[in-house]
Protein backbone atom coordinates (compact mmCIF):
# COMPACT_ATOMS: atom_id res chain seq x y z
CA UNK A 1 0.00 0.00 0.00
CA UNK A 2 2.54 2.67 1.01
CA UNK A 3 4.56 1.59 -1.99
CA UNK A 4 1.77 2.31 -4.40
CA UNK A 5 1.10 5.64 -2.76
CA UNK A 6 4.76 6.53 -3.08
CA UNK A 7 4.81 5.55 -6.74
CA UNK A 8 1.92 7.87 -7.58
CA UNK A 9 3.61 10.68 -5.70
CA UNK A 10 6.77 10.09 -7.70
CA UNK A 11 4.80 9.90 -10.92
CA UNK A 12 3.10 13.16 -10.12
CA UNK A 13 6.42 14.81 -9.33
CA UNK A 14 7.93 13.68 -12.63
CA UNK A 15 4.90 14.69 -14.65
CA UNK A 16 4.87 18.07 -12.95
CA UNK A 17 8.39 18.55 -14.25
CA UNK A 18 7.32 17.55 -17.77
CA UNK A 19 4.33 19.86 -17.49
CA UNK A 20 6.50 22.79 -16.50
CA UNK A 21 8.79 22.06 -19.43
CA UNK A 22 5.84 21.94 -21.82
CA UNK A 23 4.43 25.17 -20.42
CA UNK A 24 7.81 26.84 -20.91
CA UNK A 25 7.88 25.66 -24.51
CA UNK A 26 4.43 26.99 -25.31
CA UNK A 27 5.10 30.24 -23.53
CA UNK A 28 8.18 30.76 -25.71
CA UNK A 29 6.44 30.03 -29.01
CA UNK A 30 3.23 31.82 -28.05
CA UNK A 31 4.13 35.34 -29.31
CA UNK A 32 5.17 34.03 -32.71
CA UNK A 33 2.30 31.61 -32.92
CA UNK A 34 -0.32 34.20 -31.95
CA UNK A 35 1.02 36.66 -34.51
CA UNK A 36 1.00 34.03 -37.24
CA UNK A 37 -2.51 32.98 -36.28
CA UNK A 38 -3.94 36.50 -36.51
CA UNK A 39 -1.92 37.89 -39.41
CA UNK A 40 -1.04 34.89 -41.58
CA UNK A 41 -3.33 31.91 -41.14
CA UNK A 42 -6.58 33.67 -40.38
CA UNK A 43 -6.29 36.17 -43.28
CA UNK A 44 -5.27 33.39 -45.65
CA UNK A 45 -8.44 31.49 -44.77
CA UNK A 46 -10.47 34.65 -44.91
CA UNK A 47 -9.10 35.54 -48.36
CA UNK A 48 -10.21 32.16 -49.66
CA UNK A 49 -13.61 32.67 -48.05
CA UNK A 50 -13.95 36.28 -49.33
CA UNK A 51 -13.34 34.93 -52.82
CA UNK A 52 -16.65 33.08 -52.58
CA UNK A 53 -18.61 36.33 -52.18
CA UNK A 54 -19.28 38.88 -54.85
CA UNK A 55 -18.86 42.43 -53.63
CA UNK A 56 -21.90 44.49 -54.48
CA UNK A 57 -21.61 47.56 -56.63
CA UNK A 58 -22.95 49.80 -53.92
CA UNK A 59 -20.85 49.94 -50.77
CA UNK A 60 -24.02 49.95 -48.68
CA UNK A 61 -25.28 46.58 -49.87
CA UNK A 62 -23.96 43.32 -48.46
CA UNK A 63 -21.93 41.05 -50.67
CA UNK A 64 -23.61 37.93 -51.98
CA UNK A 65 -22.49 34.34 -51.88
CA UNK A 66 -21.63 33.11 -55.35
CA UNK A 67 -19.39 30.18 -54.47
CA UNK A 68 -16.40 28.98 -56.45
CA UNK A 69 -17.88 30.43 -59.63
CA UNK A 70 -16.24 33.77 -58.81
CA UNK A 71 -12.84 32.04 -58.88
CA UNK A 72 -13.60 30.68 -62.34
CA UNK A 73 -14.86 33.99 -63.67
CA UNK A 74 -11.99 36.07 -62.28
CA UNK A 75 -9.29 33.66 -63.35
CA UNK A 76 -10.66 33.58 -66.89
CA UNK A 77 -11.20 37.34 -67.11
CA UNK A 78 -8.98 39.22 -69.53
CA UNK A 79 -8.07 41.78 -66.86
CA UNK A 80 -6.71 39.08 -64.58
CA UNK A 81 -4.97 37.11 -67.33
CA UNK A 82 -3.49 40.33 -68.67
CA UNK A 83 -2.05 41.20 -65.25
CA UNK A 84 -0.64 37.69 -64.90
CA UNK A 85 0.91 37.91 -68.36
CA UNK A 86 2.51 41.29 -67.57
CA UNK A 87 3.89 39.89 -64.33
CA UNK A 88 5.50 37.06 -66.26
CA UNK A 89 6.84 39.56 -68.81
CA UNK A 90 8.24 41.65 -65.98
CA UNK A 91 9.98 38.57 -64.56
CA UNK A 92 11.37 37.72 -67.99
CA UNK A 93 12.65 41.28 -68.46
CA UNK A 94 14.26 41.56 -65.04
CA UNK A 95 15.54 38.14 -64.03
CA UNK A 96 17.85 36.82 -66.75
CA UNK A 97 19.37 40.26 -67.34
CA UNK A 98 19.70 40.98 -63.63
CA UNK A 99 21.36 37.65 -62.86
CA UNK A 100 23.69 37.85 -65.87
CA UNK A 101 24.75 41.37 -64.87
CA UNK A 102 25.22 40.25 -61.29
CA UNK A 103 27.49 37.40 -62.36
CA UNK A 104 29.38 39.66 -64.77
CA UNK A 105 30.03 42.27 -62.08
CA UNK A 106 31.00 39.59 -59.57
CA UNK A 107 33.46 38.05 -62.06
CA UNK A 108 34.82 41.47 -62.85
CA UNK A 109 35.37 42.25 -59.18
CA UNK A 110 36.73 38.79 -58.39
CA UNK A 111 40.32 39.68 -59.15
CA UNK A 112 43.34 40.55 -57.12
CA UNK A 113 43.77 44.17 -58.21
CA UNK A 114 44.70 47.24 -56.25
CA UNK A 115 41.63 49.22 -55.21
CA UNK A 116 39.23 46.39 -55.99
CA UNK A 117 37.45 47.00 -52.68
CA UNK A 118 36.28 50.39 -53.97
CA UNK A 119 34.65 48.75 -56.97
CA UNK A 120 33.08 46.08 -54.78
CA UNK A 121 31.57 48.74 -52.55
CA UNK A 122 30.19 50.61 -55.57
CA UNK A 123 28.72 47.46 -57.09
CA UNK A 124 26.99 46.47 -53.87
CA UNK A 125 25.84 50.02 -53.08
CA UNK A 126 22.37 49.68 -54.55
CA UNK A 127 21.31 47.35 -51.71
CA UNK A 128 21.06 50.55 -49.71
CA UNK A 129 18.37 51.92 -52.01
CA UNK A 130 14.83 50.85 -51.26
CA UNK A 131 12.35 50.31 -54.06
CA UNK A 132 10.90 53.72 -53.35
CA UNK A 133 14.29 55.45 -53.41
CA UNK A 134 15.27 53.79 -56.69
CA UNK A 135 11.88 54.53 -58.20
CA UNK A 136 11.87 58.20 -57.24
CA UNK A 137 15.40 58.66 -58.59
CA UNK A 138 14.43 57.18 -61.94
CA UNK A 139 11.05 58.88 -61.92
CA UNK A 140 12.88 62.18 -61.90
CA UNK A 141 15.57 61.05 -64.35
CA UNK A 142 12.85 59.90 -66.76
CA UNK A 143 10.76 63.04 -66.33
CA UNK A 144 9.99 64.38 -69.82
CA UNK A 145 10.73 67.96 -68.73
CA UNK A 146 13.83 67.79 -66.54
CA UNK A 147 14.91 64.15 -66.71
CA UNK A 148 18.51 63.63 -67.73
CA UNK A 149 17.88 60.13 -69.11
CA UNK A 150 14.96 61.39 -71.19
CA UNK A 151 17.27 64.06 -72.55
CA UNK A 152 20.05 61.65 -73.39
CA UNK A 153 17.63 59.16 -74.94
CA UNK A 154 16.30 61.95 -77.15
CA UNK A 155 12.91 61.79 -75.47
CA UNK A 156 12.78 65.35 -74.26
CA UNK A 157 9.31 66.81 -74.18
CA UNK A 158 6.23 64.89 -75.18
CA UNK A 159 4.61 62.30 -72.97
CA UNK A 160 7.79 60.68 -71.67
CA UNK A 161 9.03 57.11 -71.59
CA UNK A 162 6.87 56.06 -68.64
CA UNK A 163 3.78 57.09 -70.55
CA UNK A 164 4.78 55.18 -73.66
CA UNK A 165 2.90 51.83 -73.85
CA UNK A 166 5.89 50.15 -75.49
CA UNK A 167 8.58 51.35 -73.11
CA UNK A 168 6.77 51.66 -69.76
CA UNK A 169 7.21 48.04 -68.62
CA UNK A 170 10.82 47.79 -69.91
CA UNK A 171 11.60 51.05 -68.11
CA UNK A 172 10.13 49.75 -64.85
CA UNK A 173 12.17 46.59 -65.40
CA UNK A 174 15.41 48.54 -65.81
CA UNK A 175 14.75 50.36 -62.55
CA UNK A 176 14.18 47.01 -60.81
CA UNK A 177 17.32 45.52 -62.31
CA UNK A 178 19.36 48.47 -61.14
CA UNK A 179 17.88 48.38 -57.66
CA UNK A 180 18.56 44.65 -57.31
CA UNK A 181 22.01 44.62 -58.87
CA UNK A 182 23.69 45.19 -55.50
CA UNK A 183 21.99 42.21 -53.94
CA UNK A 184 22.69 39.94 -56.91
CA UNK A 185 26.30 41.11 -56.93
CA UNK A 186 26.75 40.33 -53.22
CA UNK A 187 25.12 36.94 -53.67
CA UNK A 188 27.25 35.97 -56.64
CA UNK A 189 30.45 37.32 -55.11
CA UNK A 190 29.91 35.22 -52.01
CA UNK A 191 29.33 32.17 -54.20
CA UNK A 192 32.42 32.91 -56.30
CA UNK A 193 34.56 33.24 -53.20
CA UNK A 194 33.37 29.83 -52.09
CA UNK A 195 34.80 28.19 -55.22
CA UNK A 196 38.21 26.79 -54.34
CA UNK A 197 41.03 28.39 -56.34
CA UNK A 198 42.59 24.96 -56.83
CA UNK A 199 39.72 23.96 -59.14
CA UNK A 200 40.32 26.90 -61.47
CA UNK A 201 44.08 26.41 -61.26
CA UNK A 202 43.63 22.79 -62.24
CA UNK A 203 41.54 23.83 -65.24
CA UNK A 204 44.19 26.37 -66.20
CA UNK A 205 46.87 23.69 -66.08
CA UNK A 206 44.65 21.57 -68.28
CA UNK A 207 44.92 24.38 -70.80
CA UNK A 208 41.32 25.57 -70.60
CA UNK A 209 40.70 29.07 -71.98
CA UNK A 210 39.22 31.61 -69.62
CA UNK A 211 35.79 31.32 -71.28
CA UNK A 212 36.03 27.56 -71.08
CA UNK A 213 37.00 27.76 -67.41
CA UNK A 214 33.96 29.94 -66.79
CA UNK A 215 31.61 27.62 -68.67
CA UNK A 216 32.84 24.32 -67.32
CA UNK A 217 34.00 25.13 -63.79
CA UNK A 218 32.66 28.43 -62.47
CA UNK A 219 29.13 28.36 -63.83
CA UNK A 220 28.28 24.81 -62.72
CA UNK A 221 29.55 25.62 -59.24
CA UNK A 222 27.49 28.82 -59.21
CA UNK A 223 24.35 26.99 -60.27
CA UNK A 224 22.85 26.52 -56.79
CA UNK A 225 23.21 30.25 -56.17
CA UNK A 226 21.80 31.04 -59.60
CA UNK A 227 18.87 28.79 -58.80
CA UNK A 228 18.34 30.62 -55.53
CA UNK A 229 18.52 33.96 -57.34
CA UNK A 230 15.92 32.76 -59.84
CA UNK A 231 13.55 31.71 -57.06
CA UNK A 232 14.04 35.00 -55.21
CA UNK A 233 13.64 36.79 -58.53
CA UNK A 234 10.35 35.06 -59.38
CA UNK A 235 8.96 35.76 -55.92
CA UNK A 236 10.23 39.35 -56.14
CA UNK A 237 8.57 39.82 -59.54
CA UNK A 238 5.23 38.77 -58.12
CA UNK A 239 5.71 41.17 -55.20
CA UNK A 240 6.97 44.17 -57.21
CA UNK A 241 4.65 46.93 -56.15
CA UNK A 242 6.52 50.08 -55.14
CA UNK A 243 8.14 50.72 -58.51
CA UNK A 244 4.80 50.38 -60.29
CA UNK A 245 3.05 52.61 -57.78
CA UNK A 246 5.62 55.37 -58.05
CA UNK A 247 6.54 55.15 -61.72
CA UNK A 248 3.35 54.31 -63.61
CA UNK A 249 0.42 53.39 -61.31
CA UNK A 250 -0.28 50.49 -63.64
CA UNK A 251 -0.48 52.74 -66.70
CA UNK A 252 -0.28 53.72 -69.43
CA UNK A 253 -3.56 52.04 -70.27
CA UNK A 254 -2.83 49.05 -67.97
CA UNK A 255 0.47 48.29 -69.68
CA UNK A 256 2.22 47.95 -66.31
CA UNK A 257 -0.77 46.50 -64.46
CA UNK A 258 0.96 43.51 -62.86
CA UNK A 259 -0.91 41.05 -60.63
CA UNK A 260 -0.07 42.67 -57.30
CA UNK A 261 -1.06 46.11 -58.58
CA UNK A 262 -4.28 44.61 -59.94
CA UNK A 263 -5.04 43.26 -56.45
CA UNK A 264 -4.25 46.63 -54.89
CA UNK A 265 -6.43 48.52 -57.33
CA UNK A 266 -9.31 46.08 -57.08
CA UNK A 267 -9.27 46.16 -53.30
CA UNK A 268 -8.36 49.70 -52.35
CA UNK A 269 -9.34 51.79 -55.37
CA UNK A 270 -12.37 49.93 -56.70
CA UNK A 271 -13.35 48.38 -53.32
CA UNK A 272 -13.99 45.03 -55.01
CA UNK A 273 -12.83 42.79 -52.16
CA UNK A 274 -14.20 39.60 -53.69
CA UNK A 275 -12.21 40.06 -56.86
CA UNK A 276 -9.07 41.09 -54.98
CA UNK A 277 -9.40 38.08 -52.68
CA UNK A 278 -9.55 35.69 -55.62
CA UNK A 279 -6.48 37.26 -57.18
CA UNK A 280 -4.68 37.10 -53.80
CA UNK A 281 -5.40 33.41 -53.48
CA UNK A 282 -4.04 32.79 -56.97
CA UNK A 283 -0.93 34.83 -56.12
CA UNK A 284 -0.48 32.69 -53.01
CA UNK A 285 -0.93 29.47 -54.99
CA UNK A 286 1.66 30.47 -57.60
CA UNK A 287 4.27 31.45 -55.02
CA UNK A 288 3.51 28.30 -53.03
CA UNK A 289 4.43 26.20 -56.05
CA UNK A 290 7.63 28.20 -56.57
CA UNK A 291 8.62 27.83 -52.93
CA UNK A 292 7.85 24.13 -52.86
CA UNK A 293 10.02 23.60 -55.92
CA UNK A 294 12.79 25.47 -54.14
CA UNK A 295 12.39 23.42 -50.95
CA UNK A 296 12.52 20.20 -52.89
CA UNK A 297 15.67 21.38 -54.62
CA UNK A 298 17.33 22.54 -51.42
CA UNK A 299 16.48 19.25 -49.75
CA UNK A 300 18.11 17.35 -52.58
CA UNK A 301 21.18 19.54 -52.50
CA UNK A 302 21.55 18.95 -48.77
CA UNK A 303 21.08 15.27 -49.37
CA UNK A 304 23.80 15.14 -51.97
CA UNK A 305 26.15 17.22 -49.87
CA UNK A 306 26.11 14.77 -46.98
Amino acid sequence: MPDRRRRTVLGRRASRRALREAATGYLLVLPALATFAVFVFYPLGRAIWLGLYRTSVSPNLPSTYVGPSQYASVVSSSAFLGSLWRTILFAVFTMPAGIALGIALAMLAHQRLRGIQVFRTVFSSTVATSTAVASVIFFTLLDPQIGLLSYWLGKKGGAGILSDPTFALPAVSVVSIWQNIGFTFILMSAALQAIPDTLLDAARLDGASSWHRFRSVTLPLLSPTVFFAIVVGIIGSFQAFGQIDILTQGGPNNHTMVLIYYIYQSAFVNNDYGLAAVASVVLFAILLVVTLVQFRFVERRVFYAT
Binding site: A22, A23, G25, F36, F41, Y42, P43, A47
Partner: peptide, 30 residues
Amino acid sequence: VRFPFRRAVFILCLATMMVPAEATIVPNRQ
Protein backbone atom coordinates in the same frame (compact mmCIF):
# COMPACT_ATOMS: atom_id res chain seq x y z
CA VAL B 1 12.52 22.66 -24.86
CA ARG B 2 10.55 19.44 -25.00
CA PHE B 3 6.85 20.07 -25.43
CA PRO B 4 4.04 18.10 -27.04
CA PHE B 5 3.41 18.71 -30.76
CA ARG B 6 6.73 20.52 -31.03
CA ARG B 7 7.29 19.24 -34.56
CA ALA B 8 3.80 20.14 -35.71
CA VAL B 9 4.07 23.65 -34.26
CA PHE B 10 7.46 24.09 -35.90
CA ILE B 11 6.10 23.05 -39.29
CA LEU B 12 3.29 25.56 -38.78
CA CYS B 13 5.90 28.29 -38.28
CA LEU B 14 7.80 27.14 -41.36
CA ALA B 15 4.59 27.21 -43.38
CA THR B 16 4.27 30.96 -42.83
CA MET B 17 7.28 31.43 -45.08
CA MET B 18 5.11 30.19 -47.93
CA VAL B 19 2.45 32.83 -47.41
CA PRO B 20 3.57 36.09 -49.00
CA ALA B 21 2.38 39.16 -47.14
CA GLU B 22 0.95 40.43 -50.42
CA ALA B 23 -1.59 37.60 -50.49
CA THR B 24 -3.14 38.60 -47.18
CA ILE B 25 -3.26 42.39 -47.40
CA VAL B 26 -6.99 42.54 -48.09
CA PRO B 27 -8.18 40.66 -44.98
CA ASN B 28 -5.32 42.06 -42.88
CA ARG B 29 -6.35 45.60 -43.62
CA GLN B 30 -9.91 44.71 -42.56
